[in-house]
Design a binder for these strands. Structure first.
Lengths: 210, 210
DNA sequence: TCACAAATCAATCGATCGCTTGAACTGTAG
DNA sequence: CTACAGTTCAAGCGATCGATTGATTTGTGA
């Protein structure tokens, strides 16, 4: 058997880092970047105030790390759901895949939802110098335009891109606003039954009817 | 001619109050409630820090006054637009009326847009004890359900109410997120041409097509 | 002209902010 | 056991927070 590499000190440090990241995501989700204070984060994480400087350098660096993790996790989940679509899917199935990660987070609550709320808040107040991740968002929207374009031959790519941003914005709004929490309190399946038609209608626009 | 009631001291005080309200709305729109600081508000208003306490009692009272004004102004504009609809209007016309105030603010920018952004932020982080205005929001949604229900006979009132909240949430998102600013930078009329079909589709849902 | 009220001002308060410090604690190695 | 590195800790730093104070300016009305 291989020699176990279990330095209890390093493991304790890693646990502290994880607790700090969990705590700051909760505060980011609840109050936004402007509302994050060092003491509240360290109290939630049951850590000393100096732990933030020691492990991350500064409170801002801790926030940036947590935000970057959240954005990356959300984008990967959403792109995976869209990529897994069948080639002959319709708009409703695309909408369901597009909204899947958010709907699951709404139903689950907890840290999953906190990640979503953090992502949504960053969509409103984007930190400066996040070109890499905003580029990744743009790319994911281009992918969805490719899926959506054949289903709506009369709509230009720019307008489709706008509709996707509207749909994404609506999901973010549900993550943040009380209406999302109320929706999550409905019976199971209600989220999907109510939300997917709205998103599909937004994708489809007015073209399908007078 | 009637004796002019022009006490220059009271008029100066009123001007200071107005400048403080304008300034705090701008900061509320830009950074949210957590991001408002006394100094930034008074600097923007070119007033002394003590002016806030003197005229409003506290920074929170100033914020509450500005937020209440903004909510009331937005709701009145939206309800007036919807009430002015013809009896035989279709869903597109309802969507255009519903989005009218927000679209005009997006195009106009300035304080109009700041009011909208403040309203939108309150929709995410509602202060405690705002039962009166949230009740007014509920009432306005009931009015729109009345307009929308005959156009969509297969959809229940609860689901219609949800769709209206989605549409309102989307408008709020456009007020806050960069996508709204980009949309406002498009040629005149582009906002309405792109946004109204999305809202109408969201109202209509999937029922109109396969 | 003069007493008074409305408004503004600089100065300052205690509290809290993010962050740093040096010591203390803890488990790892030689 | 000793020396040391990784981590945690209480204490305190300067800066900024919202709010208050007493003095000062300014226009009103007798």
């Amino acid at each position: 058997m291989v020699r176990e590499r279990t330095d209890q000190r390093r493991e304790a440090g890693q646990r502290t880092r994880d607790r700090l990241l969990s705590a700051v995501v909760e505060v980011l989700a609840q109050r936004g970047q402007e509302g994050v204070t060092l003491r509240e984060v360290t109290d939630r994480a049951e850590a000393n105030v100096a732990a933030v400087s020691y492990h991350f350098g500064s409170l801002k660096a801790l926030c940036d790390t947590a935000i970057e993790d959240a954005l990356e996790r959300y984008l990967d989940a959403q792109m995976a759901a869209v990529d897994a679509l069948e080639a002959d899917s319709d708009i409703e199935e695309l909408a369901a895949a597009f909204a899947g990660p958010m709907m699951r987070a709404l139903a689950a609550g907890g840290r999953e939802l906190a990640v979503m709320r953090t992502v949504a808040r960053v969509g409103i107040d984007p930190p400066k110098g996040w070109d890499r991740l905003t580029a990744k968002f743009r790319q994911s929207r281009r992918d969805i335009v490719q899926e959506l374009s054949p289903m709506l031959p009369g709509v230009g790519d720019q307008e489709l891109n706008f509709r996707i941003r509207c749909a994404a914005g609506l999901l973010n709004w549900l993550a943040l606003a009380p209406v999302g929490a109320e929706l999550a309190a409905e019976p199971p399946g209600q989220i999907e039954r109510w939300l997917v038609p709205v998103l599909a209608g937004a994708f489809r626009g007015s073209s399908a009817a007078g």
